[in-house]
Amino acid sequence: MKKVLLLLANGFEAAEASVFTDVIGWNKSDGDGTTDLITVGTREKLKCTFNFTVIPEMHINEVNIDEFDALAVPGGFEEAGFYEDAYSEDFLNIIREFDKRGKIIASICVGALPIGKSGVLACRNATTYNFGKRQKQLSEFGANVLGDEPIVVDKNIITSYNPSTAFGVAFKLLEMLTSKENCDNVKKLMGF
């Protein structure tokens, strides 16, 4: 079984997290059955960007990275406190350890910013939210920002430029964990 760690910061966007739970869940139940997902949070209860409350299955301090094959990081809103958690050393260290082991890291929208802040995107291609200051911030972390590309894959890291790319990122993660054929089957079953 391939396990995905869905890493949640306070203020994350529920829609961006839910695509990972749905795509990985559909694969577990109706695809090749080889994937599972565990939600991990920085707090016992997390409030999403628009006040939806989530209780993660595991706290960030309980994580054994060797038990996981991939990391998924949804973005969030600054006004909801996203960067307070996403830029914490515990959060950044999880990202560093996944990259150090060459494991897949998938992010949506500004989920790329903590990845950049962790240092693992230095001199690598990436993207993030394509309106306002976020792409400039990502470049200041040393990333080569491909601003017009909706989804960018550089070796083991997937980044994207806004919430509209969420399903595309989740499907790319599934493809990298399983196969293109299996991913295409899950897409079809989900109506894509």
Rank of each mutant, 00 (worst) to 15 (best):
K2F: 04
V4Q: 00
L7F: 03
L7T: 09
L7Y: 04
N10P: 05
N10M: 08
N10T: 08
G11P: 03
G11W: 01
G11A: 09
E13I: 05
A14G: 02
A17G: 04
A17Q: 04
A17N: 04
V19S: 03
V19T: 13
T21L: 11
D22E: 10
D22N: 08
D22M: 02
G25W: 12
N27C: 03
K28V: 01
S29H: 14
G31H: 04
G31P: 05
D32N: 13
D32R: 05
G33I: 03
G33P: 06
D36N: 07
T39I: 06
V40P: 00
T42W: 06
K45P: 00
L46S: 03
L46H: 03
C48M: 06
C48V: 05
T49P: 10
F50N: 15
N51C: 07
N51W: 10
N51H: 10
F52S: 04
E57Q: 12
M58H: 01
H59N: 15
N61C: 11
E62H: 01
E62P: 00
V63N: 02
N64H: 05
N64I: 04
N64V: 00
I65P: 00
D66Q: 10
E67R: 01
F68V: 00
F68G: 01
V73K: 03
P74C: 09
G76R: 04
G76D: 11
F77I: 12
F77L: 15
E79V: 15
E79L: 14
E79T: 14
A80F: 09
G81Y: 10
Y83V: 12
A86M: 11
A86V: 09
A86F: 13
A86Q: 05
A86R: 02
Y87R: 12
Y87E: 14
S88M: 11
F91A: 13
N93I: 12
I95S: 06
F98V: 01
F98K: 01
R101M: 05
G102T: 10
K103R: 09
I104F: 10
A106W: 03
A106C: 12
A106T: 02
S107R: 11
I108R: 02
C109N: 13
V110W: 11
G111A: 15
G111S: 13
A112D: 09
A112G: 15
S118D: 10
S118N: 13
V120T: 12
L121S: 11
L121F: 09
C123E: 15
T128V: 14
N130E: 14
F131H: 12
F131M: 08
K133Q: 07
K133I: 13
Q135A: 02
Q135L: 09
Q135G: 00
K136N: 09
L138D: 07
F141D: 07
F141I: 09
G142S: 12
L146M: 15
G147Q: 14
D148F: 06
D148G: 07
I151Y: 09
I151D: 07
V152P: 02
V153W: 03
K155W: 09
N156F: 05
I158M: 14
S160C: 12
S160V: 10
N162K: 12
N162Y: 11
P163C: 09
S164T: 10
T165D: 08
G168Q: 03
A170T: 02
F171R: 00
F171I: 02
L173F: 08
L173V: 02
E175S: 10
M176Y: 04
S179K: 04
E181A: 12
C183L: 06
N185D: 11
K188G: 01
L189M: 11
M190F: 08
F192E: 13
